[in-house]
């Protein structure tokens, strides 16, 4: 019984605040890596190019997750509420976006090509809602 009450009463376990900097570092490192490959004039094989694309995207996604799930310096119950609402809205947004893109995909296949971008869109929507609500609180 004690464990059940602990589960409901304990706030969501978040990463320490310095993970925001680590996340930002991940994103910057990925961007720098992609840009440096383009500038250096190296022409990797199609297979390597695809692998680099996947790795850089995953690193950016990991960085975004670190930023999203690390504590604020002034973390409190209102911040947690804003975070939960932003997460819920991001989930609803991505479900609606998926359905709409599928419906339009019947007409035009080009519109549903970028399915890998769903996670990015979800994170971007989350950040937009979260930081807007934080500014308005």
């Amino acid at each position: 019984m004690q464990k059940v009450t602990d589960y409901f009463n304990k706030p969501l376990n978040l990463l320490p605040n310095y993970f925001k900097k680590i996340g930002l570092g991940f994103i910057l490192a990925s961007v720098v890596f992609v840009v440096s490959v383009k500038i250096s004039g190296i022409h990797p094989t199609a297979e390597k190019k695809e692998m680099m694309k996947i790795i850089s995207k995953d690193v950016v996604l990991l960085g975004m997750m670190f930023i999203a799930f690390s504590k604020e310096k002034d973390e409190d119950e209102l911040t947690m509420l804003i975070r939960m609402k932003a997460l819920a809205s991001a989930f609803v947004y991505i479900v609606i976006f998926k359905i709409v893109s599928d419906v339009f995909g019947i007409i035009d296949q080009e519109l549903i090509e970028n399915k890998n971008g769903y996670f990015f869109q979800m994170m971007i929507w989350y950040f937009f809602v979260y930081y807007s609500a934080k500014l308005l609180r």
């Binding site: 002034d74 409190d76 119950e77 209102l78 911040t79 509420l81 609180r137």
Partner: peptide
């Protein structure tokens, strides 16, 4: 009370209802 200034501002202006603990 261990919250941010913005939270106190939100409570004062009735934008946010605090938890029982707060």
């Amino acid at each position: 009370v261990g919250v941010s200034r913005q939270t106190i501002n939100s409570i004062e202006s009735n934008r946010y209802i605090p938890s029982t603990t707060l």
